[in-house]
Design a protein around this nucleic acid. Structure first.
Lengths: 210, 210
DNA sequence: GTTGCAAGTCACCAGTCGGTGACAATATCT
DNA sequence: AGATATTGTCACCGACTGGTGACTTGCAAC
């Protein structure tokens, strides 16, 4: 072992990230973390003061909420505000679904055993949405009667829950679903959700509407 | 102790319900459950085969998802389809927020440590939504171009996530939120969400639209 | 009453958890 | 070189976990 404090510190955080991504925060323990990082568990207490310190450091230097970027420079090239909002939300959903650590940190907000990751996640999400709305407002005219932050928050929450549920149903599709039933984890079901998303944004954000 | 198998069985399930409601499924253990139920833990294995059996029994005989009822008999008395959908969703949200066991079982769907409560929750939710849509369709004319199940699923998911997040933020409001920020756990923020909900249902479900 | 079976209790197992003190090895500075 | 402070290792602690076998208590049928 190279006696390098920064290196082992980084190894601990790295291992914590992958362990959390794999099994969730409740399954993260001092022993397993030290084992995965290839160091002794006493170093976790020395460097971070305990597991919670590791999670705090993890939240401080990792991306816990997808940072979607508004596509550059085609300000008014035919793309409407409704389409822009929809595509941003779908991008956020895709990035969230693909990032196991993001998914787990999103779940950590909801668990009764709170961790230091939860506030970091909430803050990153808020900042990201604020940035998204700010750039949208500079590039499109937002009708004054529509509450864009509320709309984004509502739709983003719905998509987030879909992503969380989908991440837990791996092939164990439940049968007996009536034809009427809609399952976002199914391609057909997801297409309906996408269509509904488009319908909502179009109905609310098109200027000719009320 | 009254040597009554059914009584102790019921006591175990009852204690399991309150323990889960209080601390979540991950905090439910054989020892604590037996202690709370006032019986020996070996009975848990004898009667249910283990903790998972208790959770399965719990899911089978408890309400894990609010069963909101369509208000009776005022079919066309001025209440529009949009208003009906909105009020049903708000009722569902209120019932979900008030039921600790419901909240915890909803979280259990998202945890990596799956339990036998998750499928029961999902099934109850599906059935409830299907019933809600069915009665809505009999009492109101639903425009053919609108996918009512998808709309309900999307809005219900958003409200569910709001309820889950709110149940975990007990007074530890985070500061430094910009004026632009929207927090559903705040009265003002929640009012904006409600308004947005109304705007969406109205924009999509009013016949004169599109 | 006496017998038999189910209900309930107790003691214990092996394993894991988080956490700590004493110690060895290495790097750094004089 | 030697002295010192830091980095890493090891062994151990008490507490708790899920789980099981051997036991005692009580009800109910005979």
């Amino acid at each position: 072992m190279t006696r390098d404090r920064f290196a082992t510190r980084a190894a601990i955080i790295e291992s914590a990230a992958s362990l959390v991504a794999a099994g969730g925060i409740p399954h993260l323990g001092v022993n397993s973390l030290a084992d995965a990082a290839g160091c002794d568990k006493v170093l976790i207490y020395r460097y971070f003061g305990g597991l919670d310190g590791v999670l705090a450091a993890l939240g401080a230097e990792r991306v816990l909420w997808p940072a979607v970027e508004v596509p550059p420079e085609n300000d008014d090239s035919g793309v409407s505000l409704a389409e822009a909002v929809q595509s941003l939300l779908l991008e956020e959903w895709a990035a969230l679904s693909a990032g196991a650590l993001m998914l787990q940190s999103a779940v950590s907000e909801l668990e009764s055993s709170r961790s230091s990751l939860s506030p970091a996640t909430a803050q990153q999400r808020d900042e990201q949405h604020a940035r998204m709305i700010a750039t949208l407002k500079t590039r499109h005219r937002v009708p004054p009667y529509v509450d864009l932050p509320a709309l984004v928050e509502l739709l983003s929450s719905a998509l987030t829950l879909f992503a969380l549920r989908a991440s837990q149903t791996h092939g164990d599709r439940r049968e007996g679903s009536p034809a009427q039933h809609l399952d976002p984890a199914t391609p057909a079901g997801w297409r309906r959700i996408e269509k509904m998303l488009g319908a909502i944004t179009r109905a609310l954000l098109h200027a000719e509407h009320q």
